[in-house]
Amino acid sequence: MAKKKADAEEVKEELKGKDAKNSKENFGSTESENEQDSVALEKAAEKESLKTEKPLDIEKKKKELLEKAKKLKEKISSEGPTTKELKEQIKLKKRADMLIPLDEYVKAGIYLGTKVVTPDMRAFVYRRRADGLAIFNTDLIDEKLKEGIEYLSKFAPEDVILVCKRQVGWKAAEMFSRLTGIRVFTKKYPAGILTNTQLPDFFENELTIVTDSWLDRNALNDTLNVRKKVLMICDTNNFSKGTDQIIIGNNKNSRSLGVIFYLLAKGYCKAKKIEADIPDLDWWTAEED
């Protein structure tokens, strides 16, 4: 019995020794493999850092990038310009097609409205200044002037009258009348001249150009009473009710009214083929002594 026990202990010790030996061998093997992997990784990393692209490789990549850029550009062109580009193109085209350069409109102060903005004129206001003054959209000023010229050109000179009670507009209004042959009333409009057939100076017209509906209300009312057409210059404080065509802009400034009457005269004479020696814009916008 004692002998069997001793034999068992001997076998146990032998197995224990073998396990320890195998474990040591396995650990050594794993450690060796890890060390080899680590060295290989370091070498590979170092190799990557030492790499330098050859000139041919750079040129090749550059060529590929240029090709991609070209294809992208062609794709964009085929799809058409972006919204931003379209807006810019339209803006530039409008500037190029203006009746006069934008800076001339600005110098004349035609874009300056009043602190009062009627519902009729709200759509034409771009913004308000810090002092509350409304600012007209200059693109719309130009568009409305073009429309006004086209509308006025439908009428013969003898069928049109211009009414301008505001003193700062008299000089330009009278020159407009002289060039176009259109009758003008400055200072005072004779009430009833369009409506009262009993008046010795009664006459009929087809169109009345109103400079300011507040000052020229008698002429406006007479024209509406006889159901004739109205072309009105509207500032931000004017109502456009009853008009057939409006021109927007500052109607309280001599330079602004000078620009408006200059463009109307020039456009009307051209449309009607009237030969007239029209003064340049500087004359129309010059302050009177």
Rank of each mutant, 00 (worst) to 15 (best):
R95D: 11
T82P: 11
K87Q: 13
L56A: 03
V125E: 12
L41V: 12
A40F: 05
K84H: 05
K154M: 10
K12R: 15
L56W: 00
E9D: 08
L112E: 07
K21L: 13
Y126L: 10
E104A: 04
L86E: 08
K115M: 02
A45I: 11
K18L: 11
P101I: 00
D103P: 09
R129F: 11
A40P: 06
A123G: 13
F124K: 00
L145F: 04
E33R: 12
K107V: 08
D19I: 13
A45F: 06
E67K: 13
K60Y: 05
G148Y: 01
R95K: 08
R95A: 10
T82N: 04
S23A: 15
V39K: 15
S32H: 08
A134D: 12
S49W: 11
G132A: 10
I110G: 06
T118I: 09
D19K: 07
D19N: 02
L86K: 10
D19W: 02
F27G: 00
L99I: 14
K75T: 07
E10Q: 11
D139G: 00
E14C: 05
K91I: 05
K154S: 11
G17E: 09
K12D: 09
S32T: 14
K154P: 01
I149K: 08
K16N: 03
E53C: 00
G80M: 02
E64N: 04
K144S: 15
S23E: 15
K24G: 05
A20G: 08
K73C: 02
K61W: 00
L140N: 01
N22W: 15
R122D: 15
G17K: 06
K43S: 11
S77H: 06
F27L: 07
E10K: 13
K51G: 01
Y105W: 07
Y105D: 03
T138S: 13
K115Y: 00
D37W: 13
L102W: 09
G113L: 08
K24R: 15
K115S: 03
A44E: 14
E79C: 03
V125W: 12
G148Q: 04
E25N: 12
R129Y: 06
K107C: 02
L56M: 00
E150I: 06
S78M: 03
F124Q: 01
L72K: 14
E143T: 02
L72T: 04
S77L: 15
E104M: 03
A130S: 13
K70R: 15
E147A: 06
V11R: 14
A69N: 12
Y126V: 03
K12C: 12
Y126E: 09
S77Q: 14
A8I: 09
Y111A: 02
G28K: 04
T114E: 11
A134C: 10
E147D: 08
P119N: 04
I100M: 10
V39E: 15
T82V: 08
I141C: 03
E48M: 11
K62V: 05
K146H: 00
E74P: 01
A45M: 08
K87T: 12
A108D: 07
T114F: 11
I135N: 05
E42A: 14
E14R: 14
I110A: 14
D57Q: 07
S38T: 14
S23D: 12
E48N: 12
V39G: 04
V117H: 01
V106L: 01
G113K: 07
L72G: 07
E88H: 09
K84T: 02
E35F: 10
E59T: 04
E13L: 13
